[in-house]
Nucleic acid binder design. Structure first.
Lengths: 139, 139
DNA sequence: CTACAACTTCAAGTTAACTTTAAGTCAAGT
DNA sequence: ACTTGACTTAAAGTTAACTTGAAGTTGTAG
């Protein structure tokens, strides 16, 4: 596949594809003249990358998880660690979601004054500030 | 409270506090001479901001949600929209988490070749690429 | 075979969210 | 009175993740 075809199929722009290749996140299978040629399984790889991005991982973390080459042995401990991080994040997001939903329905004059909202937020916020930093640190 | 006290209590650096104030995310209650003075409820506000950041919101979005001033009427539709976005994100993260957990346990030679992993990832990835862009777009 | 759209590289520009630096202000302890 | 250390502003620097621009190359339709 040519780069434009990959771009269309994946929704990832050609410039981003070149950027990802430069970063080692994807690989072209070769060249036809000067032009890159991709195999179709780059699409799957791109989905995984998008998934990782959506999950809040940096490109560097993603390359750590997926492996930069066709590296078959992935660090299982790292994966579990990442899974646990995700689980933590999910809990926070759920609390946040509940908080937002309540805030939308609540008739208290200010959300910051609504006890239910505050309880939800406090639950969610417990350790969040450190958590944000911590999640970034566990590389 | 002086800025250093807020910084210590919140874990947010003084420079970030000034930056947040500049952006209208927090407010100092006044000045003593040239120095900012904060009321203790800025801490709560900072927790909410941290929570929002952890949930993947931009500072701009957060100020949209929390209100830049002591704006008591928040856009309820926006909150629900954000709650729904969060719910979508949660689903993706859960899928990712399950995928990672399986990958850690799976003995297939390559995760990309493991049918269970691929099924999980495909499930999770459905619409993710557009989703990432879409979530950014809904400002 | 020539025009041209689609590629290429490399460098520079962009945005978000901060941090760092430089230069100055001020309250307090010695 | 003077030094010190925590503050101040304004501007510039940083990093991630891209995008854009300039200048050159090439496969292919006419």
């Amino acid at each position: 596949m040519e780069i434009s075809r990959v771009a269309k199929k994946s929704g990832v722009s050609a410039s981003t594809l070149r950027f990802y290749e430069e970063k080692g996140l994807i690989k072209s299978i070769g060249r036809q003249g000067i032009r890159r040629v991709f195999s179709s399984n780059v699409l799957e790889r791109l989905e995984l990358i998008a998934l990782g991005r959506a999950a809040g991982f940096s490109l560097e973390e993603i390359s750590g998880i997926l492996g930069t080459d066709a590296k078959p042995d992935i660090d299982r401990d790292l994966l579990l660690k990442k899974a646990n991080e995700l689980d933590e994040t999910v809990k926070k997001l759920e609390a946040m979601r509940d908080g937002l939903q309540h805030a939308a329905a609540c008739t208290a004059p200010s959300h910051l004054e609504c006890p239910r909202f505050r309880r939800l937020m406090n639950l969610a916020a417990a350790g969040v500030i450190e958590g944000v930093a911590a999640n970034k640190t566990i590389k």
